[in-house]
Simulated scan of single mutants.
Amino acid sequence: MKFDQIKQIYPEAQLVHEPKNTNVTVSFPFKDQWIQFNAATKTNRELDLLQLMFKPEQAPLQHAAKQSDWYAFLLGERNELPEKTGDFRVIQFALLKKDQQFDQKTWLKAFKSMFESVDEAFFIDETAGLLIQSESAGKLTVEELSAIIQTLDDDFSIKTICYIGQFWPFNSDFRSIIMEEQIIFNKQKNKTSALFSLPTVALNYYTAEALEKSPLMQALKKKFIGQPEWKELVLAMWHSQGNISLAAKSLYVHRNTLQYRIDRFYELSGLSLRDMNDLLLCYLLLL
């Protein structure tokens, strides 16, 4: 499909050189650029359809992956469980902006070296794959992993998006849980940071559809769409969990300036960002 044809269907679509995914915009890879859409005007079903439209075509799987017990089990080629015990997590990854010189095997080896107790790692297509890790004493934080992956991206001149799964007991429920994590990854990877986990996206993922169906919430949301400066204020207060000093620091403003903005926000919206219930409601309106 050509960009002109997409433009006829979605007049607001734009070609950009770098992806910009926020609560109001969403980007998808298109040839050597990105197509940016207005996410605020799209339903979840439309966004899912766009995700399918711009999903890269899958290349034939590597022979090594085909022989993997983990691959066969997690992707549904066999129902019996591999002979494993303990807790495991699956780290999903997708590579963006790789060039023709990219060496898949070298990158995968470097990626595996970042984690302890790796049981297996493999690509499932040209750009995406899974790493299975058994639970161990040494666990890097999301912030530490993010810094390491950024260094790896710089070395290989690519961009990596990762979902850090939870550790789950290896039992008959394991595959269905991982399948849900895969759905979460595919739906949220263009809406959040390059490295994320369930706690960072759960509220967004599990409430977005319900909010979309609510006339009351949609009516409130219209107020927020018309006030773009509110988003920055609400997010700063949410990320600081109501701590005004931390929020002021993140916004690079004086505490008194932020106090004034919060008071002004209350006058216009009737919602107090000092109250955690009101703050949660305001955050939900941005999802």
Rank of each mutant, 00 (worst) to 15 (best):
E57S: 13
P199N: 07
D263T: 15
V16M: 10
T207R: 00
H254K: 15
S176F: 10
R261H: 13
D263A: 14
F174E: 04
Q36W: 05
T25L: 02
L268Y: 04
A59G: 15
Q241F: 14
S134D: 06
L271N: 09
D4G: 05
L145W: 11
F37E: 04
K221M: 06
I91F: 10
E57H: 14
L47A: 09
L198Q: 13
K20I: 13
Y163I: 03
F174P: 00
E181P: 05
K2P: 00
S27C: 15
P19A: 12
E57P: 02
V90F: 06
L74G: 04
L198W: 15
V201R: 01
N243Q: 14
L81D: 02
F102I: 05
E120L: 03
N79S: 14
E77V: 06
L50R: 05
R89S: 08
L96P: 03
D125S: 15
K189C: 10
E229H: 13
K42R: 11
S113R: 07
R264C: 00
R274F: 12
N186C: 05
N44I: 07
Q33S: 12
W238Y: 15
L280D: 02
L281S: 03
E126F: 12
Y71E: 02
I35D: 04
A247C: 11
E229L: 12
G129F: 07
W70Y: 00
Q92Y: 11
Q8S: 14
D275V: 05
A94Y: 01
K98I: 15
A40L: 10
T160P: 09
S134W: 02
S172V: 13
I161F: 05
N243T: 02
T192N: 13
L286W: 06
R78I: 12
G76N: 01
P19E: 05
D263C: 01
E57Q: 14
I124L: 12
E120S: 11
S245T: 15
D99H: 10
F37A: 08
Q5A: 15
D87K: 04
E144C: 00
Y205L: 07
L195S: 00
G242T: 03
L96W: 08
S197T: 13
T200K: 14
Q14I: 09
K84M: 11
L203M: 12
Q58G: 14
R45M: 10
N204V: 03
E209K: 11
E180F: 09
L258M: 00
F3N: 03
Q14K: 14
N243V: 08
K2W: 10
Y205R: 06
L81P: 01
Q188G: 02
Q101T: 14
I184C: 01
F37W: 07
T22M: 00
I148C: 09
L47W: 04
R255S: 06
Q150C: 09
A247E: 05
R255E: 10
A248F: 02
V90P: 07
S117Y: 10
I35L: 11
K222H: 04
C162Y: 05
A147P: 03
E57R: 15
K159S: 15
P29S: 07
L246Q: 15
Q101N: 15
F102Y: 09
S113A: 15
S68I: 01
A219C: 10
A110N: 09
A13T: 08
S146G: 02
G138Y: 15
D99L: 06
K231E: 13
Q8W: 00
F111Q: 10
